[in-house]
Amino acid sequence: MIAQAISWPFLSPLSHTNATSASAQDLAELLRDVTEHQRRKASDWRPDVRARIEEIAVECSVRDWDNYGAQRISEVTKHNAQAFVDLLPPDLPEPQAAADPDGEISLYWDFGPDRMFTASIGESGAISYAGILGKGVKRHGQEPFRGDVAKILVDSVREVSRPR
């Protein structure tokens, strides 16, 4: 409780200690855990993307939201997209969220020309994905969404985001 109430940057120096007693070392380990937990929490983009999906669902809740005849985003699609985001590893790069004209919500990782990946989900829960993972390297397909994230999706995002 005390550790949670203290901002983590201030705890960081305390987690590195030369103390040798067992209790001092336990305390240092506990502080290391707390700072690591807070660091991960601070860099977790998933709440932001969830919030963005919430906004998209409101903006695109009526048909023709794009003025080109797009389908509306349904509540089911929104929930599916948020559930999908919750299961993505937080150490992946942060995606952009967008609405597709067929009423699905897509996540998009953009690292410039020839390095783009997208995955979309709709009411059915199936995840359609496509990506350009380097010049001339294409990958696309569909995976069922059954409460976990298919390995090929995670691998593809890691591949497309790898520095060249």
């Binding site: 067929d102 699905e104 897509s106 783009m116 997208t118 979309s120 359609s128 994905y129 496509a130 990506g131 350009i132 294409k138 696309h140 397909g141 569909q142």
Partner: peptide, 11 residues
């Protein structure tokens, strides 16, 4: 198929 359309649109 949606993923085929995504792929072409990306390209």
């Amino acid at each position: 198929e949606k993923h085929q359309r995504q792929m072409k649109a990306l390209e």
